[in-house]
Simulated assay, not measured.
Amino acid sequence: MHKGKGLALAGAFIIAAFTAFGQAEIRPGEVWPDTKGEHIQAHGGGITKIKDTYYWYGEERRKGLDTNKRYVSCYASKNLADWTFKGDVIQMSDPENLGRKWILERPKVFYNHKTQKYVMYFHLDNAAYKYARVGIAISDRADGEFKFVKSFRPLDHESRDIGQFVDDDGSAYLIFEDRPFGFRIARLADDYLSLEKEICLIPQHMEGGAIVHYKGLYYAIGSALTGWRANPNKYATARSLAGPWSEFKDIAPPETNTYGAQSTLMLKITGSKTTSVIFLGDIWKPKAQWDSRYLWMPLEIGDGKLWLPKPAAFTINVKTGETQIK
Rank of each mutant, 00 (worst) to 15 (best):
I138C: 14
V119D: 00
H123A: 09
D178M: 04
L188R: 12
D190H: 12
G182C: 06
F183C: 04
R179I: 14
S171I: 07
E158M: 08
Q164Y: 07
R187L: 10
H157P: 08
R187K: 15
R179W: 14
Y173T: 07
Y118C: 07
F146N: 00
K147P: 14
R133P: 00
A186F: 08
R141W: 06
N126E: 11
A128E: 08
R179P: 13
Y131Q: 07
E196H: 07
M120F: 13
A137Q: 05
G170E: 10
A186T: 09
G163W: 10
A189W: 08
Y118V: 08
G144V: 10
A128G: 05
S194L: 07
I162V: 15
P154T: 08
A127I: 09
A172Y: 01
S194D: 14
R141N: 13
A186M: 07
F148G: 10
H157D: 14
S194H: 06
A127T: 05
L195M: 09
D178S: 08
K117P: 11
Q164D: 05
I136T: 01
R141P: 01
F122C: 05
K117Q: 14
L195G: 04
K150P: 15
P154R: 08
Y173K: 13
F181G: 10
I185A: 11
K150S: 14
D191F: 02
V166R: 03
V166P: 00
A172Q: 10
I136E: 01
E196G: 04
A172L: 03
V149F: 04
V134W: 04
S194F: 04
R133L: 00
R179Y: 13
R187P: 02
D143Y: 12
I175G: 00
A172R: 04
K117I: 12
Y131M: 02
D156P: 01
